[in-house]
């Protein structure tokens, strides 16, 4: 099965707290009115400019092993191998909020509106993560239908958890996300920039648990795994996803 998904932008608007976190503003802080206004404006611009869409495709464990191997530059041992080995279903995916948002961000910088530009950038980044979360809620339908209380779907991306970013090439060759307007450059960078790629892994929640104490974890600033692991036993959730950059 290979399927394109399109969302109305309003369904992909991210949580305000997550946007503020990306701006370095912790939860519970009383925000000045001017910052709230900038956030509101950024959310509105996002809703107007975003064109959120995704492409997903089933993949067997054997076929995924070849994609994952990529150009042979992964860390010698990674948590992804253990997770995938115990998975019920795997799906490749690429999702994007489109290129118009990035253009609007650049335009705001060019017009000397850096606060608005940076806020819109954070909104778009959080929305990109949310796309992967939404995919995780929707797919894989068969696995979720078979065991709705047991299956958890989380995404893993090239550039994170020891999966080298050069793995993007094999993923793109297999999935063909050019069909939704997402391409890859020589540095394995996706265009539009606000895109996310990887594999959706569905299986019992416990398969996604691992300690972020691998050598490559030291270079990962955000550690999104820490944010999504605590929610695993409670509800079906995809958690925060990576954005296809390594070590962020």
């Amino acid at each position: 099965m290979k399927e394109r998904v399109d969302w109305p932008p309003v369904e992909t608007v991210p949580d305000r707290a997550e946007v503020l976190r990306l701006q370095g503003i912790p939860g519970g802080v009383a925000l000045p009115r001017r910052i709230v206004q900038i956030l509101d404006e950024a959310m509105a611009v996002y809703t107007e400019a975003a064109e959120p869409r995704a492409l997903v495709q089933d993949i067997s464990c054997e076929a995924f092993a070849a994609v994952y191997r990529g150009e042979g530059r992964n860390a010698p041992v990674t948590p992804i191998e253990g997770v995938v080995d115990r998975a019920k279903t795997l799906m490749l995916f690429v999702a994007t909020v489109g290129g118009c948002v990035t253009e609007r961000i650049r335009d705001l910088f060019a017009r000397n509106e850096p606060a608005h530009a940076a806020m819109l950038d954070s909104v778009a980044s959080a929305a990109t993560d949310r796309l992967a979360l939404l995919l995780g809620h929707r797919y894989p339908a068969a696995a979720r239908d078979a065991a709705p209380n047991d299956v958890r779907t989380l995404g893993y991306s090239p550039g994170y958890c020891g999966w080298h970013v050069s793995g993007q090439r094999a993923l793109f060759e297999t999935l063909g996300p050019e069909a939704i307007g997402v391409t890859l450059n020589a540095s394995f960078l996706m265009d539009p920039l606000k895109s996310v790629s990887g594999v959706l892994v569905a299986g019992p929640g416990e398969i996604h648990r691992f300690k972020p104490s691998w050598a490559f974890c030291a270079d990962c600033r955000d550690k999104p795994c820490l944010g999504r692991m605590p929610s695993l036993p409670i509800a079906s959730t995809a958690g925060a996803m990576s954005r296809g950059v390594e070590g962020a």
């Binding site: 503003i25 802080v29 606060a115």
Partner: peptide, 14 residues
């Protein structure tokens, strides 16, 4: 203060 405040100040600086 936070990033948006700094960037608003930078705009005023410009």
């Amino acid at each position: 203060i936070f990033l948006p405040d700094v960037l608003l100040a930078a705009r005023a600086m410009y």
